[in-house]
Design a protein around this nucleic acid. Structure first.
Lengths: 191, 191
DNA sequence: AAAACTTGAATGATCATTCAATTTTTTGAT
DNA sequence: ATCAAAAAATTGAATGATCATTCAAGTTTT
């Protein structure tokens, strides 16, 4: 019935423990043993499932990237106009499930490691291209042809910057407010 | 005449070597020995001058923060209107001397370490507050009172996001174009 | 019975940091 | 200027701590 049962359970537990551990100590500082402890397991077990610490980060990011993609598609499903779909992309970025202090921290750690890892930079490139492509598709129906690229880049920079600052401030994230602010910014940019 | 001569020379050499080393390998990966080699010296010498690896990063950031401050003040000197001073803040952020691949990388490494270091997070907070205060002061003369805070935050997020993406793309930075784009964004935001 | 899972302990590599010994530079008195 | 003493600078090598990773020996699940 479920051949991959335990493997899947452990996978998710370790990813969750990694998110917590990375948030609390940073990826470079947190040890395999600490992450394992968060998951009630042993460092050797993580090695068994993931192979290496870097692969663990990669798996964790695949998880977050998957959630982002899912959040975006879910919102797309009920969006009928280009405006709505544009908002869907941005709102997904600040989804209640995604825009949390823990996940903001993990993103920053990811950004700091990606330039030095072929596998991580590939993940980053793919995700960025996907978001860019969605923004591009909608914006081309809203703003003049010659400013589509610039607005796309601006929106991406803005969203990344908000995540970055959220990680620095450490405190609470307010996803609803972030979506509201982003909407205001968007209205200014696409007039 | 120059009591601190050698100390100052070494200080600057090591900071320059750190910028290069961190850009090439990341702060967590680069070793004291590698940085020392870049500076034609030894790891022990860095310890003699800076005390620890973290203090070396701190000194390097103080250097970059100082350059940012100087770039801003220099542009302020010739700015006469609130508009001009606002642009001065933004242009300083994308100054030819600052917006380079090497320095963008160092900033990202700094961001990833700041949340876990009291001294680094303090530096971050101080710099951010200073930039915010300048933006705030000019924006309050340009945009409605109730949107000053939001626009300030937006501009900061945008600038950070641009630096972040520059570090990811690894390639060349185009400071003049970055200033041009920022100006366009600003025009939209402050209308 | 086999396959999957688990982990304590060993391994080995890595490095920041320290230290002792040496060289270089500065100081200040003549 | 000269020189000796002090201060500053330099570094090879030792230290010690940290950890990811491996492995062998078990346990649990299929």
């Amino acid at each position: 019935m479920q051949r991959r049962r335990i493997r899947d359970i452990r996978h998710d537990e370790f990813v969750a423990a990694t998110i917590r551990g990375v948030h609390e100590r940073g990826f470079g500082q947190v040890t395999m043993a600490e992450i394992a402890q968060q998951a009630g397991s042993s460092a050797a077990s993580i090695a068994y499932y993931f192979g290496s610490k870097e692969k663990l980060l990669e798996a964790t990011m695949r998880h977050l990237l998957g959630m982002l993609k899912a959040a975006m598609l879910a919102r797309y499903a009920t969006a009928n106009t280009a405006q709505d779909r544009l908002r869907a992309v941005i709102d997904a970025n600040f989804d209640d499930q995604l825009f949390t202090p823990e996940q903001c921290s993990v993103w920053v750690q990811f950004w700091s490691h990606a330039p030095y890892s072929k596998r991580l930079s590939r993940l980053h490139r793919i995700n960025r291209a996907r978001v860019e492509s969605h923004l591009h598709a909608e914006l081309r129906q809203i703003v003049p042809e010659d400013s589509v690229g610039a607005v796309t880049a601006t929106v991406q920079a803005y969203m990344d910057g908000v995540w970055l600052e959220a990680a620095q401030s450490g405190g609470a994230c307010d996803p609803a407010d972030a979506r509201r602010q982003a909407r205001i910014v968007l209205e200014r940019l696409v007039v």
